[in-house]
Amino acid sequence: MEAAIEEYRPKPKPKKDDFWKALGLPARGAQLHEALEKGVPYKVYTELAVASGLESKELARYVVIKPATLQRRATAGRFKQDEGDRLYRFAEVYKSAVDLFEGDQQRARRWLLNPVRGLGGRRPVEMVATTAGAEAVLDLIGRLEHGVFA
Rank of each mutant, 00 (worst) to 15 (best):
M1H: 11
I5W: 02
E6F: 10
E6S: 09
E6I: 09
E7D: 13
Y8K: 07
R9W: 06
P10Q: 12
P10G: 07
P10M: 06
K13F: 08
K13G: 08
P14L: 03
K15V: 12
K15M: 08
K15R: 15
K16V: 11
K16R: 14
K16A: 13
D18W: 12
F19V: 04
F19P: 04
F19G: 07
W20L: 04
W20G: 03
K21N: 13
A22Q: 13
P26N: 03
G29L: 00
G29R: 08
E34R: 14
A35D: 04
L36F: 10
E37A: 14
Y42P: 00
Y42V: 00
Y45R: 01
T46E: 15
T46S: 15
E47F: 09
V50S: 11
S52D: 07
S52N: 04
G53Q: 04
L54F: 10
E55K: 15
E55M: 14
E55Q: 13
E55V: 10
S56T: 13
A60F: 05
Y62G: 01
Y62S: 04
V63D: 06
V63T: 07
V64C: 09
V64I: 10
P67H: 03
P67E: 01
A68P: 05
A68M: 12
T69R: 09
T69M: 09
L70F: 03
Q71D: 05
R72E: 10
R73A: 03
A74M: 11
T75V: 14
G77I: 05
R78L: 09
F79H: 08
F79G: 01
F79K: 00
K80R: 15
K80T: 12
Q81M: 13
D82S: 14
D82A: 12
E83L: 03
D85K: 14
L87E: 00
L87T: 02
Y88G: 01
F90R: 02
E92L: 14
K95P: 00
S96N: 12
S96A: 15
A97H: 05
D99A: 12
F101N: 00
F101S: 00
E102G: 01
Q106S: 12
R107P: 02
R107Y: 02
A108E: 01
L112Q: 05
L112C: 00
L113F: 07
N114T: 14
P115I: 10
V116G: 07
V116R: 11
L119Y: 01
L119G: 08
G120I: 08
R122M: 12
R122K: 15
R122I: 03
R123K: 15
R123A: 11
P124T: 08
M127H: 06
M127A: 09
T130L: 05
A134V: 03
E135M: 12
E135K: 14
A136E: 11
A136I: 03
V137Y: 07
L140N: 00
L144P: 05
H146Y: 11
G147N: 04
G147Q: 00
V148Y: 09
F149S: 08
A150H: 14
A150L: 14
A150N: 13
